[in-house]
Amino acid sequence: MLVRALIVLAVLGLAALGWWWWSRREGQVRHVEIPGALTPDVLGAPRGYRATYVQFSTPMCAKCPGTRALLQRVAAEYEGVTHVDIDASERLDLARELDIMRTPTTLVLDTNGVVVARINGAPTEAQAREAIDATPSPGTEYAI
């Protein structure tokens, strides 16, 4: 009985460690290069002319509604940034193709629809902004 109690403590300790490691990665903005663009056709929604948040959610995802509200709010503050929410359990084709393993996962598309960043898990507001700030703002190409 003592051995099993110690095993329980060890398992819970490992679970806590695993959670700490997992939550440290949560929301981190990773810059990626995926060749090929996601067209409005594939997304089922128009893209922003500066950048697009493509959020993958499922109905069973506890943090997805919060992330949706956050990204919609941040997107509204930038010019030319939009937010698209995709149900990954309905679009398994996209989820497989883009290797979506968990929800929420958010891809950030640049002006051409190319995936430039990936956020696994729920981002903070700062992380959501960081991903957009890394994309060129519209107008810079016209500056002299």
Partner: peptide
């Protein structure tokens, strides 16, 4: 930790 493990595996299972 208010972390829902079952919810995380939902998409993987699907």
């Amino acid at each position: 930790f208010d972390f829902c493990l079952g919810c995380e595996v939902y998409l993987l299972v699907t």
